[in-house]
């Protein structure tokens, strides 16, 4: 009888431990088709055990307690909400994807790595060069997009392109600042800056481009319908595969020393041929940003 009691207690203690043991804790901000595409790329690459936790399904999720109890070897945060939820996790490496604020989180988050949402500035500069653009207008909030702007300036200088920058601190300023670019730029570069580009100001960019008869280059294909001449769109599956490679390196222990952020590798150039034709702009194949 004593032996049976011991066996029962042992099983009750040990079985839950065995059930919660997994390699990857996937924190998903919400159920979103784009996130699912990313996860498809992730799951196609390895056979590691994982647990998926959709934060929007719960009123409140204590990620720190889950990590302490489940002890995953790596956390994959999909979306800004998931990344924010991991800000207090210090001992477990975090790979973030689909997060616009990944760069700001990186400053206070040493164990954070991941794939950004922005195409490398050099790609845009190369595209401007292919379009034979000399002056490019940019509106951005330095607090949010300063790091990206620095990279862009370096690339522009290298390519001989002048960036005419207007800084804003509030969305309403964007429209007024846009008007100051009239006649001073050959193209307008819409940065994925949540201050400069809002639902209220998006129309102003394209109206400006229409009024000034200059191309507007943006970052998402959805803007092509509003009048964008060309966009460099990221490939979600590619981001998933890129994150999967990071996770694999972490699991192997090879990436522990260099927890840096990567630009997305799968970049797709999409153009609005009608706009380009109306603006009589042709993109030189030799200078294609995808090369």
């Amino acid at each position: 009888m004593r032996r049976l009691t011991f066996i029962i207690l042992a099983l009750a203690t040990l079985l839950p431990s065995l059930a919660q043991a997994y390699d990857i804790l996937i924190l998903q901000s919400r159920r979103d088709p784009a996130y699912e595409d990313v996860l498809k790329g992730l799951r196609a690459g390895h056979n590691a055990s994982q647990r998926v936790l959709v934060l929007s399904d719960y009123a409140e999720v204590d990620v720190v307690r889950i990590v302490r109890e489940d002890r995953p070897r790596v956390i994959l945060a999909v979306g800004d909400a998931a990344l924010t939820a991991t800000r207090n996790v210090r001992n477990t490496p975090v790979v973030a994807v689909m997060s616009l604020g990944i760069n700001s989180h990186k400053r206070s988050h040493d164990n954070l790595t991941g794939v950004g949402m922005l195409a490398p500035p050099a790609r845009y500069i190369a595209m401007f060069k292919a379009m034979k653009i000399r002056r490019v207008g940019v509106i951005c909030n330095p607090a949010k997009s300063g790091w990206y702007l620095r990279l862009a300036r370096q690339a522009a200088e290298a390519a001989g392109i002048e960036l005419v920058v207007r800084e804003v601190s509030a969305p309403r300023e964007s429209i007024e600042r846009l008007s100051t670019l009239a006649g001073k730029v050959d193209a307008l570069w819409m940065l994925p800056d949540s201050t400069a580009v809002t639902r209220g100001t998006v129309e102003a960019y394209f109206r400006f481009g229409q009024e000034q008869n200059i191309p507007v280059v943006s970052f998402a294909a959805s803007y092509l319908g509003l009048g964008a001449a060309a966009v460099l769109e990221i490939d979600l599956l590619a981001i998933g595969r890129q994150a999967d490679a990071m996770v694999a390196e972490i699991l192997r222990g090879t990436r522990r020393e260099s927890m840096s952020l990567d630009f997305p590798k799968g970049i797709t150039l999409k153009t609005n041929s009608s706009v380009l034709k109306r603006l009589r702009i042709a993109i030189n194949e030799d200078d294609s940003p995808l090369q």
């Binding site: 784009a34 209220g200 509003l226």
Partner: peptide, 23 residues
């Protein structure tokens, strides 16, 4: 706002953005 005008996040993620407040 223009209903076709997406926010940065929704345009990047391809998801639906939050409902904008009237101007």
């Amino acid at each position: 706002c223009n209903p076709q005008s997406d926010s940065v996040e929704s345009s990047l993620t391809g998801g639906h953005g939050t409902t904008s407040s009237p101007l």
